[in-house]
Design a protein around this nucleic acid. Structure first.
Lengths: 185, 185
DNA sequence: AAATGTGTAAAATATTTATTTTATAGATTT
DNA sequence: AAATCTATAAAATAAATATTTTACACATTT
């Protein structure tokens, strides 16, 4: 009976769905997760056509998704002699994928926050120039200045946190299980 | 001139938007972030009506949003003698908010993953019962078993990571700026 | 240089998520 | 116990995201 390969295929698909599902926790679209899972389980880089075939989605969509994955640092195009089509490779280490998503999300936020802090600080300084009559307004302004300081400190913390992950320092304090190497490498 | 309070109000709104924006990085809807920001800047718990007024959105939407916030552990209803309406209070520590969102997101994922692992492991065990003729299928099955192990280890790591944050241990290694206390408390 | 294969912009459509409107149930006051 | 106030469920609508269709530019092969 050829029951077995069928069941096996099904388990594999469940696994891919689980990877996709996990990915959703990072706020990325389900399809990105699924594509990651498909390539991961394939154990070899794949072409847009293959992905299109595997997902049942259009090739254009695959192109869009792959671009996003590259932006997120969880995929890259690789060159192979004699192959004209793009070959998409994914990060195959779960931990590294976690870190890539975590850091690329927060780095974006950090850079936006820095710009905001600068802008708001300038605006508040500009207000300084005039003379205030309203006592409570002066206090409110002071409070806002305090608030910016708290916020800046908070984002400074996030920034250090990102570095803590990216450098791998995190693993010194929350270690991986020993002996677990990906894909048997 | 009453230029000043106006400008100040504007800065405050910008701050609220920034809080909302930051919140988006956790994958929560913009409105949740905005409501958090509004209550935070208000420095006092607020009613659904007040929130409705402040956001310009319907009271029903506020009710929905507050419920989500409570699920995420970043808000709670508080009782105040003589006040019939619900009063919504938010977590006013940025770091704690970060941790609450991080942990509640991942805890959900962890529990889903545990269920999945169990299920898939059972299915694979069930297949064991039969006799296999196909050599390559046997190998594939073995690989899948390996894969589940890697996955389980990975989620075990996430689980410990969540604990690392929730316990506050993280601050021993990525410390807050000293002397920064929220809202001057 | 025509013909075919490749990837991706731009526009159109479909699906999902956010929000409002309407309706209702449980308190509190009159 | 009618009238009013509260929050929220259920259904309807609007807005945002995901996906496909169409079109096109750039290579490579014929």
């Amino acid at each position: 009976m050829d029951e077995f390969p069928h069941q096996l295929e099904e388990s594999k698909e469940q696994f891919i769905e689980k990877i996709a599902d996990n990915m959703r926790t990072f706020g990325v679209s389900e399809t990105i997760g699924r594509v990651l899972g498909i390539i991961y389980m394939n154990r070899e880089p794949m072409t847009l056509d293959q992905l299109s075939e595997a997902t049942g989605m259009s090739k254009v969509r695959m192109s869009q998704v792959v671009r996003q994955m590259i932006e997120l640092n969880i995929a890259e195009k690789v060159f192979k002699k004699g192959v004209r089509k793009d070959l998409i490779k994914v990060e195959d280490d779960y931990y590294q994928t976690f870190i890539s998503l975590f850091t690329s999300n927060w780095r974006k936020a950090i850079s936006k926050s820095r710009a905001f802090e600068r802008k708001l600080r300038n605006e508040l300084n500009a207000m300084e120039a005039e003379e205030w009559q309203d006592e409570s307004a002066i206090q409110e302004k002071q409070e806002l200045i305090e608030e910016i300081k708290l916020w800046t400190d908070y984002y400074d913390w996030i920034s250090r946190l990102v570095e803590f992950f990216e450098s791998g320092e995190i693993f010194n304090h929350v270690p991986k299980k020993e002996g677990g190497n990906q894909h048997g490498k």
